[in-house]
């Protein structure tokens, strides 16, 4: 049985459905990625897993403990690193860790040893006794992560932990996550960075508009797409009709599959070509026959973005852009305030 089971989870905030009948399973001891554009429902899912938000319907079990019925028991199992870092500016990093360890009822000796270990592990020695208000974004993230790890949780839940971080801090966090996973910790990491999830996750779920659109191991998801991914443009900005005609041409060629029109990228056409066949020459001939010239043609190995593109007809970047301005972050923050 899976260590974490999320069953038919739904959550709405007044007029917005943040999660719609979402189900996922997570094995123990893996790094599980939650990928999706801003506004997809990642943070809501993470907050439910962290017992901060109660779902409208559905169930969550961690180690067979019902999260909704026994949130306190779940809190003993989890460590949570929020997207918005909330530190007490007046406290020093060490005082914050000391405070946090008391909330987890750690014994004096145990907490000092643990704090010392984490300070070394996250390379915080030089600034740990400075007030949190003086920390840079990377320092804040590291101290926040240390706070989430103090009590050695069985499950570490991180909501976009590397957003806006410098490379040094990001690498330190990535390395730590790998080490923690090797030590047997189950890690749930939400991100809208493809490379982060691709590099770190053993398994992942892709969420869009509160629904699961793909789930599995990154390599398998990419493999399912078949051969190389081609992005074709016959003009910089084509029309929909033009792209539809190209789709018809492509669909007549044996070995080309999964043809979709990417509206957000000037009606470019994306498709998959079987690895063994040299189809590009044939493609050029067919296009020329219909009086189309190739404006641009890019060929790439399938990525997680392609998995997203295949399911939604848009890239993650396009989805991010289309969400810009649509979200009322202030309202969302008020709605999630206790």
């Amino acid at each position: 049985m899976n260590y974490i089971q999320v069953k038919n989870l739904s959550k709405s905030y007044s007029d917005i459905d943040a999660l719609k009948d979402l189900s996922i399973d997570i094995e123990a001891g893996i790094l599980f990625g939650i990928l999706g554009p801003n506004g997809a429902g990642k943070s809501t899912l993470i907050k439910i897993l962290a017992t901060l938000v109660e779902p409208n319907s559905g169930e969550v079990f961690i180690n067979n403990i019902n999260l909704i019925k026994n949130p306190r028991k779940i809190r003993e199992l989890i460590g949570y690193v929020a997207q918005d870092i909330a530190l007490d500016k007046i406290l020093t990093g060490r005082e914050l860790l000391d405070f946090q360890s008391d909330l987890y009822h750690m014994k004096k000796k145990e907490k000092y040893e643990r704090i010392k270990t984490l300070i070394n592990q996250l390379e915080m020695n030089d600034w740990i006794d400075r007030k949190c208000g003086t920390y840079s974004g990377g320092m804040k993230r590291r101290i926040d992560l240390a706070a989430g790890l103090l009590h050695l949780p069985k499950v570490l839940i991180l909501d976009e932990p590397t957003v806006g971080l410098d490379i040094e801090s990001r690498n330190i966090i990535w390395q730590l996550l790998k080490d923690l996973k090797n030590d047997g910790m189950t890690i749930i990491l939400s991100s809208h960075y493809l490379d982060e999830i691709d590099k770190l996750a053993d398994s992942l779920v892709i969420i869009d508009a509160g629904k699961v659109i793909a789930q599995g191991k990154p390599a398998l998801l990419k493999e399912k797409l078949g051969g190389d991914r081609i992005t074709l443009k016959v003009r910089e900005f084509s029309t929909q009709e033009e792209s539809k005609k190209i789709c018809e041409i492509l669909s007549s060629i044996d070995g080309i599959s999964r043809i979709i029109i990417n509206k957000a990228q000037g009606y470019s056409v994306n498709f998959v070509v079987e690895k063994e066949k040299d189809l590009l020459t044939k493609l050029k001939v067919e296009l020329a026959f219909s009086k189309f010239e190739i404006f641009s043609l890019t060929q790439s190995q399938p990525s997680l973005d392609d998995v997203y593109l295949q399911a939604t007809g848009k890239t993650l970047l396009d989805a991010e852009i289309s969400m810009t301005g649509k979200r009322d972050l202030k309202k969302e923050s008020k709605q999630s305030m206790r």
Partner: peptide
């Protein structure tokens, strides 16, 4: 509440 520090307390297994 406003700055999210309360969530730090609410996620902890307080007695």
């Amino acid at each position: 509440r406003e700055f999210g520090f309360l969530n730090r307390l609410l996620v902890a297994p307080l007695a």
